[in-house]
Structure formats: C-alpha cells, structure tokens
C-alpha cells in the first residue's frame, strides 16, 4: 500500500514538475506547481511527518499559491513570447547534460546509499507538532532566529526594488 501510494504521488510530482517548466502560460505553470506541492505533502505524510505535510498544504499549496496567482493576474502576464533560435545551444547542451546529471545521481543513489538503513515508510517518528516545535525552539533555536533577519531582508528588498523612481 505504502509503496503504491509513494509511486503514484512521486510520479504525479515529477509529471507536474515537468509540466510546470514546459507550459507556456504562467497560470498553467502555477497550477502545476499546486500539483507538485500537493503530492509532496502526501509524500511527507507517508514518511510520518504529519506537521510538515499539513504546513505544506496550508502554507505552500494554499497561501503561497494564491499569492502567486494574484501576482500573475495583477501583472496581467500572458503567454510567453516565442524567442526563436536563441536557445539552440541550451537545447543541444543543456538537455543531454541534464539527462547525464540525473542518470548519474540516480545511479549513485542506487549504488551508494545503504539499503537496509534506508527509508522505511511510516517508521519515521518525530513528525508531530510537538516534536517539530521542540526541535525548532531548543536545538535549532539559533537558525530559527536568524531566519527572522532573512524575512527582514525580504521586506527591505521589496521596498528597495519596488519603490518609485529616483528623482
């Protein structure tokens, strides 16, 4: 059962991810991103990370995607204009190299990662809100606090890059 669910949602995630890139219209891409986020949430749930799965659905698939769609609609972004001839180099070199990288990585995952100690579904404990909260506010308190500086920078960046023209 676990394996079937995993394969199903992993396949959906990958398919939506590819679709996200190849779609010409930004709305279609954004909707594929919802698919990726949703299937990732299921994968987290399969691993036993309940809190992360819920946060993934509420924050990413919900709030952030709504924001994305709003921005796309506000900017009135239409279909991407075609840029012929420009990306021949990227097509010739990029796609084979990407295939090589992915092939190499999957070979290495197969080959190098220890099998018996590998992931077993549902065996993971510590995914409850209590565990996550405990980890964040005790062991990893410092990175958590520094993240607030990161958010401050994001606000500043929005002010700087979106302000009115100088003069």
């Amino acid at each position: 059962m676990d394996v079937i669910l995993f394969l199903l949602f992993a396949a959906i995630a990958v398919a939506c991810g590819v679709n996200l890139v190849v779609q010409k219209h930004p709305i279609a891409s954004a909707l594929s991103l919802v698919g990726v986020m949703g299937s990732l949430a299921v994968l987290y749930l399969l691993l036993g990370a309940e809190f992360i799965a819920a946060a993934q659905v509420i924050v990413y698939a919900g709030a952030i995607m709504v924001l994305f769609l709003f921005v796309i609609m506000l900017l009135n972004a239409g279909g991407e204009p075609k840029t012929p001839g420009k990306s021949r180099m990227a097509g010739l070199l990029g796609i084979p190299l990407m295939a090589v990288l992915l092939g190499l990585l999957s070979y290495l995952v197969q080959r190098a990662l220890p099998k018996p100690a590998g992931v077993t579904f549902g065996a993971f404990t510590g995914g409850k809100p209590y565990d996550v909260g405990k980890a964040i506010f005790t062991e990893y308190m410092l990175p958590f606090e520094i993240t607030s500086v990161l958010i401050l920078i994001a606000i500043l960046g929005a002010i700087v890059l979106a302000r009115k023209e100088i003069d």
Binding site: G157, V160, E165, I166
Partner: peptide, 12 residues
C-alpha cells in the same frame, strides 16, 4: 539575498 537586492539597488 541581501547582496542580490544590493546589486539591483539602482532601480532605474
């Protein structure tokens, strides 16, 4: 991220 923003600081 702070450096990315600084690189585009002169918006015009």
């Amino acid at each position: 991220i702070a450096t990315y923003v600084l690189a585009g600081y002169l918006r015009d």
